[in-house]
Computed example of a mutant assay.
Amino acid sequence: MGFFDRNIFIDIIEWLPENDDLIVYKYDRHDNEIKNGAQLIVRESQVAVIIEQGQFADVFYPGTHTLSTENIPLLSDLRGWKHGFDSPFVTEVYYINTKFITDLGWGTPNEIMLRDADFGIVRISAYGSYHVKVNDPVTFLKEVSGVEDAFTTEMLDEKLMPFVLSNFTDTLGEAKVPALDLAMKYKEIGDECEVLLQTKFDQFGIEIANFIVENISLPESVQEAIDQRASMGAIGNMNTYQQYQMGNAMGNVGEGNSEGGSVNSTINDAMQMGMNMGMASNMINQMMGMQRNAQAPQNQQAPPPVPSGPGAPPPVPGAAPSQLSFHISSNGSQYGPYTLDQLKQYVAEGRVNKDTMVWREGMPAWAPMGTHTETASLFGGMATPPPPPPPM
């Protein structure tokens, strides 16, 4: 077999990638030489680079090209050949995939500490994705892949990840977005990261696109605080809500009496719920820095357990019955204050009856609702007058 037998020379050079994981592929000659005049086929989304003696000889874009000393003058200069030299030659051909790589993900391996105006120091974690492609093959070979026979997306991900995480951390810290508003700022944060990363990736011959922030997670304690703040906003007036909850927990007192139910159990449940609601309210106020709602009654005289004697306070001057505050008592426990309108609603719902003890400012003592002038009318009848005083 002669030295110039064409079977030992390569006439056609091409790369048919079997998967999308390869970014750079060095053409395998199998120790064969490339024939002067061989055909170099470069497909769409590919670029071919000829390297001779460690120097970049030429770059070929999609199409079919003839490799010769005529169209690769640098090759002739390096070899010391004259143009048109017809001998075979050995050189390196690298193919570069120029399609966008869309399966690159990023995520914070450790929590990032940030200072937040609402919650102080918080730790967050985040993850997302981004797309890149090679837009300068020569720079990419010089700065990133080198002379590896193959360079994969996994290898590229390892090289780019430190820059991605560093830029994301800097962007998030400088943005100073409150923790409560992070969810609505994903796009703005991602766009800013993309701009900063492109400045860095230009040095590698890489173009970045679609930097996406998919999730930013807050610690469980901060999430619970956000949920509690949302609940407070939904409740509105805590005092009114607390009264409503206690009223529900009291159950149908009147019905319980008529059916032989345990009034004590019902009252105890109401007391327990009231205590729980008060404790929860205090905890939320301390954590959130909130004050009690201004609508709560101010400077209200607390009802005595069982006032007696002539020293009871006089009625509130000029106050309409609907504006007066009544307290309910049962088995030594007291609830309220309630307006007359609220008591009217409880009567209609069967929660209180004529035997329920009631007191308000100006009354000398606790009295059954059925015997007190202002509350007896709630039951559809007039108050039963008290027994006459003993003769003097």
Rank of each mutant, 00 (worst) to 15 (best):
F4I: 15
R6M: 10
R6S: 09
N7A: 10
I10A: 08
I13C: 05
L16T: 11
E18P: 01
D21F: 10
V24E: 00
Y27A: 09
D28P: 02
I34Y: 11
V42G: 00
E44H: 13
E44L: 07
Y61S: 14
P62R: 11
H65A: 11
S68R: 11
I72R: 02
D77G: 08
G84A: 04
F85Y: 06
D86T: 11
Y94D: 00
Y95Q: 02
I96M: 05
F100D: 03
T102H: 08
I121D: 05
R123V: 04
P137R: 11
K142L: 15
S145K: 06
G146T: 05
D149V: 12
F151V: 14
E154T: 07
M155I: 06
D157V: 07
K159D: 03
P162T: 09
L165P: 00
F168Q: 04
E174V: 12
A175G: 07
P178C: 08
A179R: 03
L182A: 10
M184R: 15
D191V: 07
E192P: 02
E194K: 15
K200N: 03
F204A: 01
N210G: 05
V222D: 06
Q223M: 15
R229F: 06
R229A: 10
A230Y: 07
G236Q: 10
N239M: 07
T240N: 06
Q242T: 13
Q245G: 04
Q245M: 12
G247P: 01
G247I: 02
N248E: 09
E255V: 01
G256K: 01
G256H: 00
N257P: 00
G261T: 00
G261S: 04
G261H: 01
G261P: 02
S265A: 08
N268P: 00
M273K: 05
N276L: 05
M277K: 02
A280P: 00
N282Y: 13
G289M: 12
G289A: 12
R292Y: 05
N293T: 08
Q295R: 11
A296I: 10
A296Q: 13
N299Y: 08
Q300K: 10
Q301H: 05
A302P: 01
P304G: 13
P304F: 04
V306S: 08
P307I: 01
P307A: 06
P310N: 09
P310Q: 09
A312N: 06
P317L: 14
P317W: 14
G318D: 06
S322I: 07
S322F: 14
Q323A: 15
S329G: 10
T339S: 15
V347K: 08
E349S: 05
V358P: 02
M363W: 03
A365F: 03
P368I: 09
P368E: 10
M369P: 00
T373Y: 09
S377C: 11
G380V: 09
P385T: 12
P385W: 11
